[in-house]
Nucleic acid binder design. Sequence first.
DNA 1: ATAGGTTTTGTCAAGCTTTTGTACAT
DNA 2: ATGTACAAAAGCTTGACAAAACCTAT
Lengths: 290, 290, 290
Amino acid sequence: MYSLTMSTDSGPLRIGEFARRVGVNAELLRAWERRYGLLTPIRSPGGFRLYTAEDAERVAGMRRSLDAGLSAAEAARVALEDSRPTDGLLDDAAARLLARIRDYDEAGVQGVLDESFAAFGVEAVLGQVILPALARVGDDWAQGTLDISQEHFASNLIRGRLLALARLWGRGGGPLALLACAPGEQHDISLLAFGLVLRSHGWRILFLGADTPIATLMEAVKTTEPALAVVTSFDPALLEAEADALRRLARLVRLVLSGPGVSDPFCARLGVRRLDGNLVAAANEIAAVG
Amino acid sequence: MYSLTMSTDSGPLRIGEFARRVGVNAELLRAWERRYGLLTPIRSPGGFRLYTAEDAERVAGMRRSLDAGLSAAEAARVALEDSRPTDGLLDDAAARLLARIRDYDEAGVQGVLDESFAAFGVEAVLGQVILPALARVGDDWAQGTLDISQEHFASNLIRGRLLALARLWGRGGGPLALLACAPGEQHDISLLAFGLVLRSHGWRILFLGADTPIATLMEAVKTTEPALAVVTSFDPALLEAEADALRRLARLVRLVLSGPGVSDPFCARLGVRRLDGNLVAAANEIAAVG
Amino acid sequence: MYSLTMSTDSGPLRIGEFARRVGVNAELLRAWERRYGLLTPIRSPGGFRLYTAEDAERVAGMRRSLDAGLSAAEAARVALEDSRPTDGLLDDAAARLLARIRDYDEAGVQGVLDESFAAFGVEAVLGQVILPALARVGDDWAQGTLDISQEHFASNLIRGRLLALARLWGRGGGPLALLACAPGEQHDISLLAFGLVLRSHGWRILFLGADTPIATLMEAVKTTEPALAVVTSFDPALLEAEADALRRLARLVRLVLSGPGVSDPFCARLGVRRLDGNLVAAANEIAAVG
DNA sequence: ATAGGTTTTGTCAAGCTTTTGTACAT
DNA sequence: ATGTACAAAAGCTTGACAAAACCTAT
């Protein structure tokens, strides 16, 4: 739910409104603070308590424990324990990302990404936070625990972040790579990630994105003469249908296929290289060879 | 209409008759001239003021603003402003943008966008540079003067810029708008532009983007309870196929359809509102009514 | 709703009409302005407040938050925070950065940097936010309006961010640039910024950092054979003392000097190039030539 | 839970200035 | 027609006040 109890970032509340929302009366809140240090709200200049959404979660935890039969002292200890922030490790970041996506919490997603990029750098975040989280989103959707709308929400948000990082990636003097999704293929995010890693090796990127007809790609290859063209597909059928066109394309440019829709036999038949699952590693390898 | 009173070609009038026709007493007309330079009537050889139909329009504008509650000084400023044409710097930016797109010149495109945003502000650039340029790209492609690869290149680049501006547009306390392309529809850029303008009015945006099944949209509507849902389509067939689902959706949320694929009759049949061609204006209107 | 009544561009209103439209009485509007700085309307020549449509939206936000139970002070804070969608872009970011530095507000500084990097990309932020802000910090310190400890605080924070961005910047196949501060020179941030821009052109960077003896640099040049070496200094004396060593260095590699400690005559004497004040532009130029 | 003091915030008033429609003398 | 004057309406600033909400301590 968006937040019946505590709107996402409505700012600190004074004790009256806060008590109303969490359903615990103000005197009791002060008592819990005095006795167990359950909350330590910041104060207004004049000394009024100001509570945040995090405090609301702590109170909720306290009430859960009380309902479960714990003593107040124990319940407070548990609630405090639970609400200690976990360290900003990579796995944790992925988990937090997922949780924010579930809530359609845009500011939250942006926050996790901000922190992660600042702490771990682009490449690590791509490989160990963003791509795993998106894979997980796909799985959860398949299992029915998550709706496609959340997948759409997350994709657009993350696409925006990656495109911002991609700014000016067409500039410079390195070898040029042409990146495109197969005709009919809409998943362009892993391709974006691939491009970013390649860029970090000094390559120039020309990104054609989702659903690119092979003829279009061929046109761009003739005009820009890239050192490499990458075509990605999640659906085997999409590429099968284009086998001939791809074969012709491979005569003009070094061609690489990637994505779960690409099989080794298919690549062998066309005589082109295939990138395996780990796109970040693959990009590093390509760049090294290239 | 204010020119009912001012016959079209009655020739120049002296202040007495003019005052009677525009319904503003002569003393006041002189005061407005002296204080705000609202009118600069030519003079007869003997020094009498001679007013034209254009002057009458200016006076009418002045009165409209006064009735709207503006101060006399401000009303005069507005009336004068309105009777002056605007410049064509924005058109030039659109032309330069197009030229850079033709060359696959990423840094160039980014540069033009940087300059334009800095000089004219987001809203003007959206409405008068980016959307016109993309429309032109579409036309040129239809005419064969431009390749689809350039369209892909430009779309991805501009999508990135708009998504960057969209950062944190889900945050805050304003009414929530849910934005999505019809199932099968891939053109999400004008929808992004629409969202940005709505955001500038304080709305919160949840963006589901391209190719969103109506069922998905419905799911998100139930969870987030937006004040408005917008579905866009460039292809009439895509919406026709979903008429029933849209009708159900319209029972849950205030629904608006947009894009060239939406016809007035279709909207009438569903009993929903339609947004016309100019998305920026439409967003302003929606925000005002909202 | 909040802008049914506020037509989009009717021009500024005085407080009476404005109060009527937003439904908040004039006394209260003035109180909110005085106490929380909610609005800062421009004034008529005689001192009357003139309100715009944007102000109306801010008031609407304030009322929403009040209805949600926030205290007036907090509601104003939220309304102010929210009403920064899209428009006051990069200049605004620089100003906010400076304000956070003054307050030793680390989270605030990181937040501004997060936002800026995510929305505008590295190069724009370096050139138009970070470097201007640091220059300003230096000026303010010289004028005594800012403490040296604030300068240290800002430097360390920003250095950390730039180093995070610099991850892996030695990788790839582009031309190599060797970057170092003159012996005794400790200011390495602008050199870092320079490196990042060069990197965005696909160059590889080897960063030797603060206080690098020329002999060390020479050694590195022999080993790595860079296409360019940059030495920076803020103090003329530091370079003067090394004139001979620099001359020898310039025979091995294309050498460029930068920083306020470098004079044109000195460069002419050594026959090396000098970079002028705007490092971002300079890097772009170098990269283009290189 | 109550008592007694403090902070916050909407409202009001007094005294003065600006703005603006209208009037008057030349 | 012009220039000046005038008075009502609307606004400005400063200061104050009282009800509501909150504080601590018993």
